[in-house]
Amino acid sequence: MKKVLIVDDASDCRLMIKGMLNNQGFGIIEADNGFDGWKKILVERPDLIFLDLHMPNKNGFEILKDLEEEWMGIPVVVVSGDSTQNAIDSCFMYGASAYLHKPINKQAFVDALKVLD
């Protein structure tokens, strides 16, 4: 079973992503801040990460940089309300596989899951 980690300080966003993953056979892990998310990445070694950018304790940009520095190779789908081109470019520069805007478009979500194929 593939493991998916959802790192987002907004419980409603985590719930929405879990609902969109429902019945797809993933083991779902959650973290409500970046620090806890990073700890779960190190312990759980998920197959895919859904990552918010603006969170307390450790933001999504820091997690992307840490993943790159550690050469972990875990695909990351950024899910953020930040639609600035600078934020999007930075995420891809640090290895994000996809960037989804909140609220999440269902087809874009399905397309982002293709990184697991």
Rank of each mutant, 00 (worst) to 15 (best):
D66N: 04
K114N: 12
L64D: 02
D111P: 04
L113G: 05
L15K: 12
I17D: 08
I49Y: 00
Q107D: 13
E69L: 08
D82S: 13
S83V: 13
G34E: 00
P46Q: 02
Q85R: 11
G60H: 00
E62D: 12
Q24V: 05
L15V: 09
N105H: 14
L53V: 10
A112R: 06
A10H: 11
N22H: 12
Q107H: 11
E30Y: 05
E70C: 09
N23M: 07
G25T: 00
N59P: 07
N105M: 09
D111M: 09
I74F: 04
G95R: 11
F50S: 01
D111A: 11
P75D: 03
V78E: 00
S97F: 00
L21I: 13
L64C: 04
K102G: 03
S97T: 09
K40R: 15
F35G: 08
L15D: 10
N59S: 07
A10N: 15
P75S: 03
N23E: 12
E69D: 10
G25K: 00
V4E: 05
V115K: 13
F61H: 08
F109W: 06
V4M: 00
P56L: 07
D66S: 09
K2V: 10
I29M: 09
P75W: 01
W38A: 02
E69H: 02
A96P: 03
E70W: 04
R14S: 03
P46I: 02
N22R: 14
D12H: 12
M55S: 06
I29R: 11
D32G: 09
V4S: 03
S80N: 10
P103H: 07
P103A: 06
S97L: 00
M72K: 06
L51R: 01
M1G: 14
C91F: 01
D32R: 06
G37Q: 06
A87E: 01
K58Q: 14
M55T: 09
L48N: 12
P56Q: 13
K18I: 01
T84E: 10
E69R: 07
C13F: 05
K3L: 02
K106H: 15
I28H: 01
L51C: 02
P46H: 05
Q24F: 08
R14M: 02
F26I: 01
S11I: 15
I29F: 07
M16N: 04
A87Q: 02
